[in-house]
Write a protein that binds this DNA or RNA. Structure first.
Lengths: 338, 338
DNA sequence: TTGAAAGCGCTAACAC
DNA sequence: GTGTTAGCGCTTTCAA
């Protein structure tokens, strides 16, 4: 039913080799033959069988992305944007994108293993890196190509793109401290994530410039969802000596905190100041609009993807390590403490 | 470097045929041989070359999903949840998921064509259906397997899962009308989308039960983003004879409308009532929490995926058409008009 | 119960 | 410039 190279060969009375060469643009085919072949191929509606090509070439022209889905309700605007960035770039460069969704854990590792063993992908993009990242260790141990979005505790052995979360939180800290807040609370990402301690450290460093420290009781650890922001923000706000500013380590949690504050009759940006991190589109339309740190997620997706593909094609050998300087986006969720 | 069936064959002194049969669980292999082969395969760390299998079997065990990304900043929590639903189900059933991201238009169609012609996928999941959907017409004309999430103007020729948006909007209408609102505005999805007119019709039908009609000047068409909700909601609120309730056709636009109202010093759920559609997680944490209609997107993703795979495997021949009854989720963004 | 051989559709080394 | 041939790794007839 579908046209093969052989069919074309028979039609033009040439060998399949010649057809193959013409199709692949080799120049050891006479112009006339080439013309003829190209023309008939088009007429017959030929298109190559991808799997035959891949089997022969021993490469899949496919990159893998395994999304860590924490909850069943994996509804994260951040990831859909990242996906678009990766997907569009991959398509531009002629690569397929194979996506798997697994929750972190042993099953996740098996998925990596399976894809490698079945030779189904040429490389991976690893997202949401952990401090000690078994996925990365595994990939490293097998010498399999990958690029990470994010660093780890030990990241001089692989290529990555990351945003400088330390610096980003420093900006937040300076901003909040500049607003004269002193009772500052923080809701951290899960501790095992690589960016968790960097953000905390940045916050502390920024605060230190103003001779401020973060009180132990003001630190909480969330899971990056609105729900946990709501819960932990509530706890913080119910403290006898309530913080006047709450720094959430991502926008989603910040929205949860806002909601908790509003439930308690507090006006966000008046009675309590709240900040986020990521600058997802929603943060421009929350009430009040959220002060946060921007991450160019779409572009990062594109960069990571391109780096990986170049690595696969061996256009680059060296490690590439990119650290982006984030930008503070001031909106209306904070005000000066008086 | 990687183990092939041939290597195992040599090791156990059997033909590759026998090895293949043992590995594939055929029962015309003696138990001992089978044991031996399985054992050595494991020892040698054998795993089959996917592309060789696929070439031979003439099927890809892969389903395709082409996400329509409207804006470069494709940040839609709805889709990440859908993706998780599809992805997890696909993995469970042993299928790969190939994801492409393209903005609607000619390029999008080429992507479908390319994947089919290269025999890279066995079927597609089509999302965000249009009234006249060229993607679906194309797939139908080629007789290529697919299942749609959503209907079209002419949808008795293919399998789909859809939520009954007509009914959903009826619920909204009845709720709003029951709250004594009369000046009710509506922000529709883009007209070319299939669910657009269904939602409008449902709204009108629900209103009609209360002898209410939708005024022409109160109808707007958005693009499903917060931004357009903000813009159009603003227009509506600036009307000399301002509506008292604004029905947005998805949650994201509803958030935009809320933000526009708040910018104008209006209290949402007091001065103006606002509703959404989808019930994305954010709608529970907006200020105020949003009254909306629930869509079980994760489950829908799973259903659609399973239907497609059954269709591919020819376990089902008949068309499957599922229409889900939605549920109204009442939160705090509306109040009785007095 | 096993094996030889053909073939899936393509590429490439080599010879002419 | 073109064709012959082998081979990518696997499955599956067919014959023994």
């Amino acid at each position: 039913m579908s046209v093969r190279i052989k069919d074309i060969a028979e039609r033009v009375n040439r060998s399949i080799t010649t057809v193959s060469r013409a199709l692949n643009g080799y120049d050891d085919v006479s112009p006339e033959t080439k013309q003829l072949i190209l023309k008939t191929a088009k007429e017959m509606g030929y298109s190559p069988n991808t799997f035959a090509q891949r089997l022969q070439k021993q490469q899949s022209d496919t990159i893998g992305l395994i999304l860590p889905t924490f909850s069943p309700r994996f509804s994260d605007p951040y990831f859909s944007e990242l996906l678009a960035g990766i997907g569009n770039k991959a398509a531009d460069l002629g690569f397929d994108l194979l996506v798997s969704t697994r929750s972190p854990g042993p099953e996740e590792n098996e998925t990596y293993e399976k894809l490698i063993d079945g030779r189904r992908v040429d490389g991976f993009i690893v997202v949401r890196t952990r401090k000690q990242d078994q996925r990365i260790n595994y990939l490293l141990s097998r010498g399999f190509p990958f690029v990470a979005f994010g660093r780890t505790d030990d990241c001089d052995r692989f290529s990555y793109v990351d945003e400088d979360g330390y610096f980003g939180m420093q900006l937040i800290a300076e901003y909040i401290a500049g607003l004269k807040h002193e009772k500052i609370a923080c809701i951290l990402p899960p501790q095992d994530l690589a960016f968790s301690e960097k953000r905390l450290a940045g916050l502390q460093a920024g605060l230190a410039e103003f001779d401020l420290t973060l009180r132990e009781e003001y630190i909480r650890e969330g899971d990056l969802t609105q729900k946990s922001g709501y819960q932990l923000g509530g706890e913080l706000l119910d403290l006898p000596d309530r913080p006047t500013a709450i720094v959430a380590c991502n926008d989603l949690m910040a929205f949860g905190v806002m909601s908790a504050a509003q439930d308690r009759g507090l006006v966000v940006g008046e009675d309590v100041s709240i900040t986020g991190f990521d600058d997802i589109p929603m943060s421009e339309y929350s009430y009040p609009p959220l002060t946060t740190v921007h991450q160019p997620v779409y572009q990062i997706g594109g960069m990571v993807c391109e780096m990986l593909i170049r690595q696969i094609c061996e256009e680059i050998q060296d490690l590439q390590q990119v650290l982006l300087k984030p930008e503070l986006i001031i909106r209306q969720s904070c005000r000066s403490y008086t």
